[in-house]
Design a binder for these strands. Structure first.
Lengths: 212, 212
DNA sequence: GGCAAACACGAGTCATCGCTCGCATTAATC
DNA sequence: GATTAATGCGAGCGATGACTCGTGTTTGCC
């Protein structure tokens, strides 16, 4: 079962795309991101996405086999961009830093990414997203959790594993909810909320990891 | 426009309910709570609620004018119970306690309530809930925020108002996400996660409020 | 028992939405 | 210019789900 990809390198369905088609796809994905952000995935009708993009429903289905494929393609694009930020945020060099600078190095890129790609949290947080996206999100989630656990295990070699897991999960959900606050804040308050989130995590983790 | 209430004291539609009808209503609300918990509000069909309650769709509409009214009635019941826990959690006597005991006194009842009423968070957190529930939730949310702000203002009389608001909002979202963790944890881990949540809040707030 | 109202049923109605299909238009290649 | 494939359209199909309605059953009251 060949999955629909924008690449023409896929076997099976060597559908040659014209430049016009590529433009339409980008246009439709942008429109879908906008509609998903404002109404959520389930409430977003394919007709409304087509209308937002200024094309007919039939044209939409020229490029996507179904509604889920739109979300999957958009999710893939966002995940690729996310992994870039994620890679930058978790380079091992940062693990040598003192805690406050570690928090800056890890949190700032992730906050900036979510600010620049609001569709990401809209797609990932929705309770009605298609299974493929949910699996991708779970994979991303546990991969980040594992990273946090590795860092913590480095600081706390004596701690039993369940404790590490619990601390990592707690750290992670604090980050996620703090991120929501930062994104929802007025622009002139964003810096203050970012600092507040870092303060919470610093005070929580500092007694655990020591002064470095 | 008279709203449908279970009371017969309402004017306009003096519909006399039999004991059997009251039982059906309770039955239907319980079934709705179960279905909302497992599938969410939007994905819950009225037919599935009726099936879960063991009655026909027509019977359901004998007691509720539409799907929204089911959620509203259920939400009203849950909000009433919540206000009971809420009142117990925020009695002014607790404000004299040292911070760790204050956290115990405030958090434990709220955690217990959410554990015993899982439909509450299902109804309140969903992105697809009817406007009436959303308004109730917003009202509850800001009333609790105000309480937290009042407590903080008592500890920090010199702090400017935006700072108080920001700290209160941060405290609140930490509680909410920590609560989700506690509720999602395995039963034998629940105590540990509860303690972890209190640790986070203690370490965050203790430098602000001092040793008491 | 007799009557009216409340309760119960479930097939059917109606609107919505994902998606299709026949056909028109545009672009690439010769 | 001719041919072919890609692109574009929008009315309409089919499934789903909220809700109705005609009819039958049970309950409260005399």
């Amino acid at each position: 079962m060949p999955e629909p990809k924008s690449d023409a390198t896929e076997a099976g369905k060597p559908r040659r795309r014209q430049a016009r088609g590529e433009r339409r796809i980008a246009q439709l994905l942008e429109a879908a991101a906008h509609v998903f952000c404002t109404t959520g995935y389930a409430a977003a009708s394919t007709n409304s996405i087509a209308r937002e993009a200024g094309v007919s429903p039939g044209t939409l289905y020229q490029f996507f086999p179904n509604k889920e494929a739109i979300a999957v393609e958009l999710g893939d694009q966002l995940l690729a961009r996310w992994r870039a930020s994620y890679g930058q945020a978790f380079v091992p060099a940062h693990f040598e830093l003192p805690l406050d600078q570690l928090l800056d190095a890890v949190l700032d890129p992730l906050i900036q990414f979510n600010y620049e790609n609001p569709a990401f949290s809209a797609l990932m947080h929705g309770p009605d997203i298609p299974g493929r996206i949910a699996r991708d999100h779970d994979a991303l989630h546990s991969s980040m959790l594992t990273r946090v656990e590795e860092i913590l295990a480095g600081y706390l070699p004596a701690a039993p594993e369940p404790d590490i897991t619990r601390i990592a999960q707690t750290t992670f959900v604090i980050f996620k909810s703090g991120l929501d606050l930062v994104l929802a804040a007025e622009p002139d308050q964003r810096e203050a909320y970012t600092a507040e989130l870092k303060t919470v995590l610093f005070r929580y983790l500092e007694p655990l990891v020591g002064d470095r």
